[in-house]
Amino acid sequence: MWFIERITGWFPDGAKPKPTWVGFTLKTLTSLPYALKYRWETMRQFYIMGNQAIPLVVVASMFVSMVLGLEWGKKLEPFGAKLMLGRMVSISVIREIGPMITGLMVAGRTGAKIVSEIGNMVLTEQIDALRAFGTDPVKRLIVPRVFASIMVMIPLTVLSDAFGIIAGWFASVVWMGIDSEFFWLSMRDGLFMKDLFIGFLKPPFYGFLIGLISGYYGYTIQGGAEGMGRAATKTVMYASLGVLIMDFVLTKIILSFY
């Protein structure tokens, strides 16, 4: 830890009152085991983040999947390939749409929550109070939130996938005239473990990025209410962009192996 402090200039002094991005990331990464020490806070954050994001993630995923069902249906119809809809929808949802929608929704909702919580604590000197009581705020506040946002992504993605596929099925059967059984058979034949693996590999990375970005902008907030607005905007912007870029990078890496 000592060398990290020295290298990154993490700890505030006259010249550097705020941590650098590199310092903050390293400090958070090396402090991740403290999620175990503060397990109740981690569990509380996990519950809040997960519970409150469910409706948003499910509704967003359902509507995007319905659009997907309709669009694929229209494109496949001229080729007489509408029966492939189950396969197309389920693969798209599980490999891309589910994780992506979950990532973007959590970036907006949870990112804004974390940045406003931490930012408010900085502005009202609660962070200084923590340090004054000999408690490391990164270990006590940032790590449980980052860990919870990593962990919460998998169950949210499962829900997003499940409701997305159901919505895709609904759109295919009701508006595209596909037989319900054909939809499920097509999905069963087209979906492999590899798709599930790819679909569930990405979300924890998104969660880490969202927790880290929002924690950083909250921790380095300056300038009262206006500063809070700036930090929240930056968080949602960079976390959403981060999810999209991370999606591309991970997809490229995964596809180079498979």
């Binding site: 000197e125 609660q126 200084d128 109070a129 340090r131 004054a132 000999g134």
Partner: peptide, 24 residues
């Protein structure tokens, strides 16, 4: 002093912040 050592010193000090800084 590195932060870890500072935390030990801070544990022997009590601070009352201007607005209280109570954990809300």
């Amino acid at each position: 002093l590195p932060e870890k050592r500072l935390l030990q010193i801070r544990q022997q000090c009590g601070m009352v912040f201007q607005e209280g800084a109570l954990f809300d």
